[in-house]
Design a protein around this nucleic acid. Structure first.
Lengths: 347, 347
DNA sequence: CTGTTAGCGCGTTCAA
DNA sequence: TTGAACGCGCTAACAG
């Protein structure tokens, strides 16, 4: 392995100068620098980042700590998009990026700070963690810079940032969209009770309902753990005895489950029952009918997280909460009662 | 940051002993070892892997080098499964795992060996690369251990392994499945010409056709780049003037595209045209009808890759080519002409 | 069994 | 502008 010594020797200078040349120090002779660089190229040398980190004490590495990804994401590529976004963000910043998946089924999980310490990781992006996770608390206590995906802390911490969309506003828009099209009898397929996004999205639905003078009834609220199968089962049971005009589903996967239940019962979507989803997962555009949903850009979310984390690490962050744009994507799964032939005219 | 010195000092021993204690050297007093471990725990110390790697010169890290993932995988989570498999495999071996995504659109890509050298990476798993990739050649020339996903080299190299399924056999089975059910007029939706898996799968289709006395006609072969949209367009054009009884698609995504085309033309699947796919992507079970396909376990593929790579790195690999099992998954997208009511009876 | 020493490859003083 | 020396946190010889 060719090291800094080799190029120093060949260039007839000391290693210190080579190091400086590579780190853009100003006090290196122009002529010398060029010679060093040429020789480095010739020898196919590039500085070892491992050693560099160790020596400089600057940890130019960030990490994604992802919890509970196992359960749902097999059917979803949102996490992967997020992941890629983080990767590209860190590439952009020339940071090294490592990951740490942690799961409920793993018996002896390692503390997040320990994970970071062992690898000289300067900060982490946390996905899928719960706010009461003791390891997360340790991160905050130890002042390890964090960026949370889709979670916002009650009391802001200087070392903790958040990247998310306005989930509450998004479901309010989504529900209002249904109400404006004449829907009054709206059932809700929620995800996991404890999840932050679930709470937010649920509030949004409630907001819309109340604003339009409708009531939020517990009887019409179901929890399906963001899982299509569970959504399918709950919807099927419910639809056997009730006939809401629409389902607001807090994820596309669950929307798929609901549509399947409806269709198996001989109901057609959206004529007999409308369905809306959330996320714009890949499947949302592939089902029959395609699902009207809230589109969010997970890749961008990941990228922004990396950038924000880097700012926090460097103490140059002014605003620790980033809200990304979302978009209501109109597709085929909603019936418009107010003007059923408008669609025809418009297209 | 608490380092090895701190625990050495507190334990009243030298750093050497602490190091040995942590690396399970036999020549450490039982009593001393316990004291050291206790103090380490108390101080919340764990060895820094960065420094450890640097010092030991053992690079306990592997990497996934993934090329061209950008194009199709947005719609597919196979890559993510693979990725998770590799992660779990490396976890199992207590290796550090890093990734390197590279893309056609990235102008100045970094050489793979350089990437590895900078990070003390002992070997890499390569996905989506082409055999004539100069960077890959460099890896082989430099003797960097590699494991190829879904590609098998013509001439085996001691430092190169492969993990894949018998793609050729799989499509042969798949095509035979159609033929046995009375299909004779079979169109083929292939992926990308240059891709290794594409070639293999194509050969398999041909094998089945020839074995059953059918001919392989170029007129019925289409290339859609593993993309659903392209498959949709090609199928639509073709179906306007021809009526094959079945489409063999070399990926589920393309199968989806073909089904969509057929359905938009008023044909029903499988009554008017049967469709089979490949991969058992998540969508294969969610379309209407669900897609009969070849299921392969990408997670396991990733995990096996990590294990194999580790063996190659340590020079303990006997067999460098691993063929995983696949399974023909019967679902709803195929019409059985020979015995149309058998299904009823069986279920 | 334990302590000492010399690096690993590099960044960063401080002199020169 | 350059070189020598030290240290990052750790492992691995080699003494003792």
């Amino acid at each position: 392995m060719v090291s800094i010594k080799d190029v120093a020797k060949k260039a007839g200078v000391s290693v210190g100068v080579v190091s400086k040349a590579f780190n853009n120090y100003p006090d290196v002779g122009k002529e010398t620098r060029k010679r060093i660089m040429d020789i480095a190229q010739e020898l196919d040398y590039s500085p070892n980042r491992i050693a560099r980190n160790l020596s400089s004490k600057k940890n130019s590495a960030i990490s994604l700590i992802s919890s509970g990804f196992e359960e749902n994401d097999q059917k979803d590529n949102n996490s992967f998009e997020l992941f890629k976004g983080i990767y590209f963000g860190s590439q952009q910043l020339n940071l090294d990026f490592s990951i740490y998946f942690t799961d409920s089924f793993k018996q002896q999980e390692q503390s997040y700070v320990q994970f970071c310490r062992e690898r000289n990781i300067g900060g982490a992006i946390l996905q899928g963690i719960k706010l009461d996770d003791p390891f997360f608390k340790e991160m905050v206590d130890t002042n390890v810079p964090c960026v949370l995906i889709d979670v916002v802390m009650d009391e802001p911490q200087s070392c903790v940032g958040s990247v998310t969309i306005q989930n509450r506003k998004a479901t309010e828009d989504l529900t209002a969209y249904l109400i404006e099209r004449g829907h009054r009898d709206i059932a809700i397929m929620a995800g996991t009770k404890e999840a932050y996004v679930n709470e937010e999205r649920l509030k949004g639905v409630q907001d819309a309902l109340l604003k339009h003078g409708l009531t939020f009834e517990d009887k019409m609220l179901f929890y399906a753990d963001f899982d299509d199968q569970q959504a399918y089962e709950k919807a099927k049971t419910y639809l056997k005895t009730h006939r809401p005009t629409a389902f607001v589903c807090l994820s596309d996967l669950m929307a798929y489950g609901v549509m399947k239940a409806a269709q198996e019962l001989g109901l057609s979507v959206p004529e007999d029952v409308s369905v809306v989803g959330f996320d714009n997962s890949m499947i949302a555009g592939m089902t029959t009918p395609t699902i009207t949903t809230i589109a969010q850009d997970f890749f961008e979310m990941g990228r922004q997280s990396a950038l924000l984390l880097n700012r926090i690490v460097n103490g140059e962050s002014k605003e620790n909460e980033i809200y990304l744009n979302y978009e209501l994507l109109e597709r085929e799964s909603v019936q418009d009662f107010t003007n059923s032939d408008r669609k025809e005219h418009e297209s």
